[in-house]
Design a binder for these strands. Structure first.
Lengths: 337, 337
DNA sequence: TGGTGTTGATTAAACGATTAACTATATTTG
DNA sequence: CAAATATAGTTAATCGTTTAATCAACACCA
């Protein structure tokens, strides 16, 4: 790689000191440098194709204008979308993003955090896998600005979070399907300790009891790593036991579940109603339009960046933002009269 | 943010010079530092929670161990997947990736290139939108190591590229569908000047003429930004004019097209056969399993990183790698006998 | 005794940019 | 006319690391 032009190169070419070159190129030369010299310098900079070395700048200013983003799983549509919004929003504030996917692995997560820290990111946005409480506490003790998205860790106190009201979201789903005449819904979800997922499940359970009088609401929990093996059997069970609507708790699980319905030629919503968590472009190639819970992704990305920047700029107060969701009602939860 | 531990802090705490701390922590202390001191230093480093400032390191070594990745459009599944493989592969070599999406916009692309350069990335992997030849030439003139993926620019000479044989891929599609008894295929694609897409179309045209004797092979080109408005009308045309199979040239266009088929309740493959370019998880919720052209994504990511690292390490010779694709044959291109 | 090696350290320059503090003229002002 | 004030610049320290060069103390040997 050819050596890049530095301030020194420009200064030497013009026979001036490095300092005024810096002043001029940063537009801090009012009353310091003559217009004539200033123009000379600007022209020479252009001619020599100068652009500043951010690395040197960062070292000097102790600020990299870079945010770290660690997401739990990049292959998950929800995260890749939110990543995009975070990147956009950061760019609006002249920050760059370096990102990594922890693949739901606490060790990988910890390693990524250290990579980001050694790169001196100004702050970190993270969706943390389970088992990462210690790392989060570490970040907090070190006073590293960070904000959690999507997932919430009640054990780690006094931190900044952006999330949705998972309990309420599920509760609303049951309200919606109740209004549409379904009597025996089941929820298919992942077996996990993550707080936000437990809330999602709890909302469903309580609502099923309170609104539909179900003594033991039907919740099927599947281990994530055996999802595609397990789900078919579980779905067939539900088809047999009189369940009239399935509520899939994530995008990924929805895709697998819908695939089973297609394979077994189950008519939606006649034979089985469907509600999914999260929007997906792909729903439109399913034979029935799909009712789903929509999260305010753009807003989440926006808030995450806002909160993080306020921390970076010295704000001391922890902030938790809980956003609402809404149900996009389509045919898959409309019982034919 | 609390001030981080530096080499100086450790040196001061132990009353030694910065230099030996550096030597010890980089394991370059054979024959320079006593074992006793070395251990002291290591322990103190751990105790003080030291980890190196990569920014300072980069400045000194003129090497950031960071690669830039600019993709044409992150919302495209193809690119987000390949981004993932590139990130994995880079990490294996202890490189980090900073990435950006140019959203098919040449100006944004140029800006991203400059962001990456000012961050002193060691090299760049890019999928370039059209109209970026000047920027690519600039990179070449500046001897910045870079490699192009997916897209190829014949006008820009002597550069490194990783791609697939698009002509051949489409030709094989026609072979496949011919063997399966289809007589009148149509290709639905984007109207674009991008070389690789034109090749993709050309392969289809030539094969249609040579294998099926079509005088004017049916190719429907749609402007990208009006895709979802246009496609329905175009598809209805094809349904009327005797077309028996549609070949969608990209993932995105396939999704839109399949949605139209669902909406109009068109049976696949009985009423219309389907072949898509690129794999998608979502195909499995379509009512018929979908035949698609699979690109070797992982290998592309792997090769891109390999080639880029060899350039970074001083290799001077341009290298173009053309990989093969293969057809995953499913029901959507199987004419019922 | 003086030269040579070995061991275990230190010193200081360098990477590229920023910026407070200083200097040297020129111009204004009371 | 001396003092104050602009104007137009330079110097040098600094950020955290790396690393070549140097140095001091001591052992060994002829």
């Amino acid at each position: 790689m050819r050596k890049k032009t530095s301030l020194k190169d420009i200064a030497d070419a013009l026979g001036v000191s490095i300092a005024i070159v810096s002043y001029v190129l940063n537009n801090k030369h009012e009353g310091r440098v003559s217009e004539y010299k200033a123009n000379q310098i600007k022209e020479m900079a252009k001619k020599m194709n100068y652009f500043p070395n951010q690395i040197a700048k960062s070292l000097r200013k102790d600020k990299t204008y870079t945010l770290g983003l660690i997401i739990a799983d990049i292959s998950n549509l929800f995260y890749s979308n939110i990543a995009r919004y975070i990147e956009d929003e950061s760019k609006r504030h002249n920050y760059n993003v370096i990102f990594g996917s922890a693949d739901e692995n606490a060790d990988k997560f910890k390693e990524l955090v250290h990579v980001m820290l050694s790169r001196q990111v100004d702050g970190i946005i993270l969706a943390a896998p389970k088992g990462t409480e210690a790392t989060l506490n570490y970040l907090r003790e070190q006073h590293i600005p960070f904000v959690l998205i999507d997932r919430h860790f009640p054990e780690v106190v006094n931190i900044n979070t952006i999330g949705i009201n998972n309990y309420q979201a599920s509760y609303s789903v049951v309200e919606h399907i109740t209004e549409n005449g379904f009597k025996k819904p089941a929820m298919v979800t992942l077996s996990t300790d993550l707080y936000h997922m437990k809330e999602r499940t709890l909302g469903f359970k309580h609502a099923s009891t309170e609104l539909l009088g179900m003594q033991s609401p039907e919740v099927v929990e599947i281990e994530e790593d055996i999802l595609s093996d397990e789900i078919e059997g579980q779905m067939l069970n539900l088809l047999k036991n009189g369940t009239d609507l399935i509520y899939f708790s994530t995008n990924k699980i929805a895709m697998e579940g819908l695939a089973v319905l297609v394979e077994h030629n189950v008519k939606v919503p006649k034979k089985m109603g469907i509600v999914c968590f999260d929007k997906a472009d792909a729903y439109k190639i399913f034979h029935t339009s799909i009712t789903y819970v929509e999260q305010p992704l753009r807003q989440m990305g926006h808030e995450a960046v806002e909160v993080l920047l306020s921390l970076i700029n010295g704000n001391q107060f922890a902030k938790s933002i809980v956003l609402g969701t809404h149900i996009v009602a389509q045919d898959s939860s409309k019982l034919p009269k």
